[in-house]
Amino acid sequence: MSDRRRINGPVGATIPPASEDGASREVAGSRGGRSRPPNAIRKMYLKTGVTPSASGSAYLEIETSGRSGVSGLKLSCTVHGPRSLPRSSPFSPHIILSTHVKYAPFATRQRRGYLRDPSERDLGTHLEAALRGAIIADRWPKSGVDIIVSIIEGDQDRETSKTQGDESWDLMNALSGCITVASAALADAGIDCIDTVAGGVAALVSDKGDGNPSIVIDPIPSEHDRILAACCIAYLPTRDEVTNLWFKGDLPASDAELYTKLVEKGIQASAKANRVLVECLGETVG
């Protein structure tokens, strides 16, 4: 599937250099354990107006954890619109949202291609659901808005082996960042919203040593031995509404309490991110 519109490089397959002895080395070195309290989120840096040519834009950077080799999330979001819909589209009494999430080729350990893969489409769909609940759509009849999030750097441990399957947990953190940064960009673009919406992640983790799984917010997969379940919440604090809930993992059905707790913690994480978001928006105006 060579794409003639891009420079594809050599015909033969290229492989990233392998690490010394597979995964064995890292387990010894990198299992540092969580460096924050279980209910603390990492520091965020948020800035609006990074793309002056767009109607609205924002940049979000989440602090790297203290340990080396772990990159923090770096996201850039642009909002274009409200603008007229393409001529072919039918009349719409409200604004039509379209969201795109794309990893940069250099965002993750494995080089990403330029075509959107299913996980990126998935992120886009979740992001749309999270934002649609926040936008006052009928303020803008027959118009559309494009929200594009570029993941410049994924929230990923460079050294952790892939075998652990933590890629899917990384998606949760990425989504929560996407929601927060898109909300800031929407506010920057001046699109009417009922509230600011931020993303938050809570996870049920089990660490070596103590047998009881515990719930933490804003988890970094490499800091925990095993993640049993995680959920990403998009939450409107003033309305006390959840606009999007994404749950993945394995929970015993008998313990409904556990699920509720997990969601509550996710809301907590989202509310914390929201405070940073509101603070940042206030600063840009002042």
Partner: peptide, 29 residues
């Protein structure tokens, strides 16, 4: 052997006419 592979991505919404979901524009190519 094509050892250098430069690619430019414009479809990031960097300007209003460059939106994702379309093949690379002539300018990007």
């Amino acid at each position: 052997y094509d050892l250098l592979v430069p690619n430019i991505e414009l479809a990031t919404g960097c300007a209003p006419q460059f939106l994702p979901g379309v093949p690379p524009t002539t300018l990007a190519q």
